[in-house]
Design a binder for these strands. Sequence first.
DNA 1: GTGATATTGAGAATCACAATCAACATGACC
DNA 2: GGTCATGTTGATTGTGATTCTCAATATCAC
Lengths: 145, 145
Amino acid sequence: MLGSFIASRGLKHSRQRDAIVETFFEMGGHVPIEELVARVRQRDGHISVATVYRTMKLLAECGLALPRQFGDGQTRYEPASVDAHHHDHLICTGCGAIVEFENEDIEALQLRVARSHGFEVESHKLELYGRCAGCRAGAGAEGSP
Amino acid sequence: MLGSFIASRGLKHSRQRDAIVETFFEMGGHVPIEELVARVRQRDGHISVATVYRTMKLLAECGLALPRQFGDGQTRYEPASVDAHHHDHLICTGCGAIVEFENEDIEALQLRVARSHGFEVESHKLELYGRCAGCRAGAGAEGSP
DNA sequence: GTGATATTGAGAATCACAATCAACATGACC
DNA sequence: GGTCATGTTGATTGTGATTCTCAATATCAC
Ligand SMILES: [Mn+2]
Ligand SMILES: [Mn+2]
Ligand SMILES: [Zn+2]
Ligand SMILES: [Zn+2]
């Protein structure tokens, strides 16, 4: 997948690229660049942040990673499979947990609302912010400031 | 409203504050700081951007303005009335038009989805990106790059 | 008016990220 | 295996929005 993308564009392999990509898929979830840099470095000495940014942008271009932009001012990437469904996110304001969900009814209503205003939807962003079960149970769970 | 807020916190009035607030409400819509600064200046000589940022933050704190953060990396503010309903946004990727909508069914579904994952929703963000009627009609309308 | 206190403005600082560019690594080709 | 054109890296600088700093200034209660 990445290999064919690299080949088809006259790009080259590199030790850094491999380390970053492998680390990213090992981590899973919704990974901020900063964390990815830390992990990659503890696995392969020093790799510059610039290279991590560049590589993640590459992964996004070939459809293997999705950039996500929640409220905290830093881009996160999550692994994407070609056959994976679109999904949206629940974000816990207490512990920062991110839960994914799919809801066809909401998607359908979005299209309908947009159409009723003359819009043709290209993409959308739906984020629900609140407290997860754990954070509501434990008076104030770890992770909260 | 602003007056009582200022009084209740030991704040003071100022020529700049008044100019910014009045200009903001005159403009209406979803105003980027940069535009607000330009308008304010053509009305009251030179007012520093720092003051505009500070004043808009004040307005937000006392509930008279809502900060909005669409995809373009700059914060916009929109006027908020105490009795105004929550609404979400349709954003045209062609001309940048921003259309507001309310949809109770979507809101209800959001709550239901959240609850089914143990979350208690505090806020949410729903943005639909696409092409407005005008931009789809005219091959490529003004405003597009 | 006076004085304590809040506000302003200019510029520096921050923060995430993009751009530069010389040194270096890769791999197609011999 | 060696060459070489070309892609990649990393240190550093640039950028754009926003915040911070702090001396100068304006406000307002008394
Ligand atoms: Mn996700
Ligand atoms: Mn709005
Ligand atoms: Zn939580
Ligand atoms: Zn449009």
